[in-house]
Amino acid sequence: MARGLGYYIFVRALMIIPTILILYTIVFILLRLLPGDPILAVVGTRNIPPEQLENLRHMAGLDKPPYIQYFDYLWRLLHGDFGVTLAIPMGTPVKNYIFSRFPATLELTIFGFTISVILGLLTGTVAAVKRGSAVDTGMRLYSIIAYTLFIPWFGLLLQYFFGLVLGVLPTSGRLDPDISLKTITGLYVLDSILTGNIDALISSLAHLVLPSLTLGIVLSGAYTRLVRNNLVDILSMDFIRSYRARGIRDWKITIYALKNAFIPVITLMGLQFAILLGGAILTETTFSWPGMGTFIVDRIDYRDYNSIQGMIIFFAFFVSLISLVVDVIYALLDPRVKY
């Protein structure tokens, strides 16, 4: 409490650095020390002139000893340089792909995240309030089923039903091909609002429905469980009983209980967001969503490990940032956290 929120955020932000360093080191060690020559992996078994191989090695920064590579790459990362692609198209900065692909992934994850939190809160609250009833059992089952849905399968079932049988929703891409949209942020929904483009807004929202529902429903299972268990605990706590004994109205007590139950849920959100990003890769592939996930999968086919490494470092940074935001929200909501 003494030094204020600004200081807390600053200190917490500093803690991102070791996290990223550790992940960078792990990824670096894994990618360099595991068996297999990445360059040969790119070019395959074809016969390639040695000088061209050398050239490739140089481009990937692989012509130096590992420890120099380690600091070299780190140094370049600090300048926002994520290296260049090793496969077709060769030599393009990975950064460019991040800039063009990240907004698509962000848009998908924001919608998916929102849906999962809302669904999780609703189902979890209903289950806790109706604890021990058939509704409660139903919600627990929902949580398990949602959690164990295999994303591509669930996404494809939705495509089959809403895209083919009902024919009401698009099953791939982000926008109808005949609609043009001036991109500002790369988040199509936001861009169409900013440019006042109604057609693009409707189209981009329609394209978002199935992918974000897929992601949202699958991820909501964990929230259902956590919200239910927390709320059950909270509802049996003394202060809730005290509220009742004071004649406070039931709906108000439910709100106070939810607020208390929400605190641990916030902690889960950071971790959930990481899982969400993993799920986003599968969702993007299932719905041909042009985001980071489809890019990574693309690069895997080319065995372009420079791009994979860059993407993973970027993900590490993004995940750390999210956990920072989550921590700050937590500190703001819970007066017991000292900062």
């Binding site: 005290s242 004649g247 208390n260």
Partner: peptide, 24 residues
């Protein structure tokens, strides 16, 4: 009954550490 609770009947519980809402 709710309108009587708190207004005409007050109650104090055993554990003061847990009978107040920690977030308010």
């Amino acid at each position: 009954f709710r309108s009587i609770l708190g207004r005409e009947i007050g109650m104090v519980f055993q554990d003061p550490m847990t009978s107040l809402d920690p977030l308010r």
